[in-house]
Amino acid sequence: MAFSVLILGTTSFLGKNLAEWINNKYLVSSVSLRNPDWKKNLENYKVFINLIGKAHDHNKTATEEDFYHVNVDLTKNIFDAFIRSEAKIFIHISSLAALEEFESLKPLTEDDSCNPNSWYGKSKREAEKWLLEQSLPENKKLIILRPPMVHGPGDKGNLGLLYKLISRGIPYPLSSFENNRSFISIDNFCFFIDEIIKSEEKLDSGIYHISDDELISTNQIINIIKKVEKKNTPSLSLPKFFVKGLAKLGDVLPIPLNSLRLKKMTSDLTVSNQKIKSALGIEKLPLTAEEGLIKTIKSFKKEK
C-alpha cells in the first residue's frame, strides 16, 4: 500500500513538478503555512519534504530578515512538526548557495568549507546548521539536499533570460570566457527525491549534493539555444581585459555589469553528486545535462 508524503511548498516551481512526478506513486498532500492550523492532522505521513524557501527578490524590496524568516524560522517550525509527527524522513531542500555562490576550483563535495555570500546563501546555511544540531529519534532521518540551479518547463530564472537574449538575435557578449557549471534538470531533481523515498534505508542522515552528471558551459547553453531556435546569432568574443574593465566601471556606475555579476556569469562552479549516487546505487540519471537543457529550452519556445 502506498504511503503518504507531505510536500510543503507545492505552489513553487519545484513543488508543482515534484507533486506531479510522485503523485502516482505515493499519497501526496500539501499544507499551507498561512493556515494557522497547518500543524494539525500531520500524524499519517511517512515523509516530509520541505521546499519552502525564499531565493529571489525581483522587486528589490526584501530585507535580510525576510530571508531568515522564510529560510530559517519556517524551517524550524516545519522540523518541529516533523519531530512531533509519526513521519520517518525529513527531506530539506537547501541550496548550493549555502556552500558557495560564485566559484570553485574543483567539483565541490559535502566536506568542503562553506562560503555563502548573499542573504539567501547565508540563511540557507543557517538553516542547515540548525537542523544538523537537532537531536533525532532513532527512528527518524534527516536528509539535506543541496542542488545547484534547477531548470525545467515553467522555470522563470536566469536561463529564461539568456534564452530571450539569444532567441531575439542579440549576440552574447561574453563568449571569450570559458567556464563550467553544474546544473540539475527538474526531471533529475525529482528522480533523486523519488529514489531517496524508495531507498532511504541506504542513506545516513546528513547533507547530500544532487546535480546532473555532466558539467556544461555557458557557451554550450548558447549553442543549444541556437540549435533549438535554428538561429545563427553571432557571439561576441570581446577581449577579457575590456570586459573586466567595464565590470569595474559598473562597480561605481549604475550599468548592468559589475565585477560580482561578471564573476557569477563566467567562473566555474561545479559540484560532485557521487556521494548520493554511490549510497543509492544510481548509475545513470534519467537525462543528461544536455538533454535536460534541450527540454527546458523547447518549453521556452512553446511559451513564446
Rank of each mutant, 00 (worst) to 15 (best):
F3P: 02
L6T: 12
T11D: 13
F13R: 06
G15I: 02
K16P: 01
N17Y: 06
E20A: 12
E20S: 13
I22M: 00
N23Y: 05
N24K: 05
K25D: 11
Y26W: 07
P36G: 15
P36E: 15
D37P: 02
W38V: 10
N41T: 10
L42R: 04
L42G: 03
L42A: 00
V47Y: 03
V47Q: 02
I49E: 00
I49N: 00
G53K: 14
G53E: 08
H58T: 13
D66H: 14
N71W: 13
D73S: 11
L74Y: 08
K76G: 10
N77W: 04
I78W: 09
I78S: 11
F79K: 00
A81G: 04
I89N: 11
S94Q: 10
S95W: 06
A97L: 01
A98S: 10
L99W: 01
E101Y: 04
F102V: 15
L108C: 12
E110Y: 07
S113E: 13
N115Q: 12
P116T: 08
N117P: 10
N117Y: 15
Y120L: 13
K122M: 14
A127E: 10
E133R: 14
Q134W: 07
L136N: 01
P137G: 08
P137L: 07
E138F: 14
R146Y: 05
P147G: 09
M149G: 13
P153M: 13
G157R: 05
Y163G: 08
I166Q: 05
S167F: 09
R168G: 07
P173T: 06
N180A: 13
R181D: 08
S182H: 06
S182D: 09
I186K: 08
N188Q: 07
N188V: 08
F189I: 14
I196K: 00
I197S: 00
E200C: 12
E200Y: 14
E201S: 12
K202P: 15
D204Y: 14
I207H: 03
S211I: 01
D212A: 12
D212Y: 07
D212V: 13
D213Y: 09
I221A: 04
K226P: 10
V228F: 10
K230F: 12
K231S: 15
L236R: 00
S237K: 14
L238I: 15
V243R: 06
G245V: 08
L249G: 14
G250Q: 00
D251T: 03
V252K: 11
L253Y: 06
P256R: 10
N258Y: 02
N258P: 03
N258F: 03
T266V: 14
L269D: 05
S272G: 09
Q274V: 13
K275W: 04
A279F: 00
A279V: 01
L280W: 04
G281M: 05
K284I: 09
L285W: 01
P286D: 01
P286M: 03
T288Q: 07
E290G: 02
K295P: 01
K295T: 03
T296Y: 04
K298G: 02
S299Y: 09
K301G: 13
K304A: 13
